[in-house]
């Protein structure tokens, strides 16, 4: 029981991070109907920006952890959204209006490009940082097991919940959110009403990247190591989360992320830890075969 509770905490933490990345996949799919396979690598870039920031802060002898975290978050979100913007501008916008396959291939190319750039400039080896946040709260002590929630886990879960609430509010209640949704539903009509569709798409990429940046900072804080390849696995798992929740659906991405995090934790704890990725991708296959529209997605209806 205690052990299961611990897995629940671990799973929620993991799920929060997948959820943050999954939002970027689902929003981009919603608005331009493509899977942005470079999104995982955008997340990886943000983790490297975080590592650089933490190293600089350590060198500058900044000792206030909340201050340092705020700084790293802001810097990482800023530069990562610039990456998101640039990727769309360079690799996808010129292909708009061509076949569906073209931007997909371009996305894979972008993903390889980002991985190699980081590998060349930062080196192929794992980059560690000293632990930023240590310790936690002991929730429950049994004779043979102690349930504990780390401060970093608490931080990740709380930040994610706050961000998701704020983000959902923005999409449902602000003028930008309405423009974003109008472009999703009918881009031509949105333009006829004065919506700058290109700008809205750019902003969508930037927002998705900014959320991935939060996940990147969290991963850095939580695991303390990054390398140029972390974007691949995290990206595909977050993509699985988006598909499980229903690609195109914002609450779906959050729910999917949470479920994937939980499934992975419990699978690793009770079954075979070395097969946890197989479990995730097994789910991807099952969802695609049995319920392609996901848990909360709309069934794809052909427009007449």
């Amino acid at each position: 029981m205690a052990y299961a509770l611990q897995q629940l905490i671990n799973g929620l933490t993991l799920g929060a991070m997948y959820g943050l990345i999954a939002i970027g996949y689902t929003m981009v799919y919603g608005i331009i109907g493509m899977i942005n396979f470079a999104h995982g690598d955008i997340f990886m870039v943000s983790a490297f920006i975080a590592v650089t920031c933490f190293t600089l802060l350590a060198a500058a002898d900044v000792s206030s952890i909340p201050l340092a975290l705020m700084f790293v978050l802001v810097v990482s979100m800023f530069f990562t959204s610039a990456y998101g913007w640039a990727v769309e501008r360079v690799a996808y916008r010129p292909l708009r209006g061509s076949t569906r396959l073209a931007p997909l291939i371009s996305a894979i190319g972008m993903s390889i490009f980002l991985q190699n750039t980081v590998q060349l400039t930062q080196g192929a080896r794992v980059k560690p940082i000293p632990p930023v946040i240590e310790g936690g709260i002991e929730l429950w002590q049994t004779p043979d097991f102690t349930v504990q929630i780390g401060w970093s886990q608490l931080l990740i879960i709380v930040t994610t919940v706050v961000l998701m609430v704020a983000f959902t509010w923005m999409i449902t209640h602000t003028a930008f959110g309405r423009q974003q949704r109008s472009c999703e539903q009918d881009r031509t009509m949105a333009a006829l009403l004065g919506v700058n569709v290109d700008r809205t798409i750019s902003l969508t990429f930037m927002l998705g990247a900014a959320l991935a940046a939060v996940a990147g900072v969290m991963v850095t804080v939580y695991y303390g190591v990054v390398d140029f390849f972390i974007g691949f696995l995290a990206g595909i798992k977050a993509f699985t989360a988006a598909v499980l929740g229903g690609i195109g659906s914002l609450p779906g991405a959050m729910l999917g992320g949470l479920l994937i995090g939980l499934i992975e934790s419990f699978w690793a704890a009770y079954l075979w830890a070395e097969y946890k990725d197989v479990a995730t991708f097994g789910i991807l296959c099952l969802v695609l075969m049995l319920r392609p529209s996901g848990l909360l997605g709309r069934p794809e209806v052909e427009k007449v």
Binding site: A175, R178, Q179, R181, S182, Q185, D186, T188, M189, A190, L192, L193, G194, V195
Partner: peptide, 25 residues
């Protein structure tokens, strides 16, 4: 302003939100 052929209202927005879109700018 155009009232297009086939109406093209935003189907997954409320009536009110559609009108807000019209007023947009």
């Amino acid at each position: 302003s155009l009232v297009p052929e086939g109406r093209r209202v935003f189907p997954r927005m409320t009536v009110f939100e559609n009108l807000q879109m019209g007023a947009g700018f």
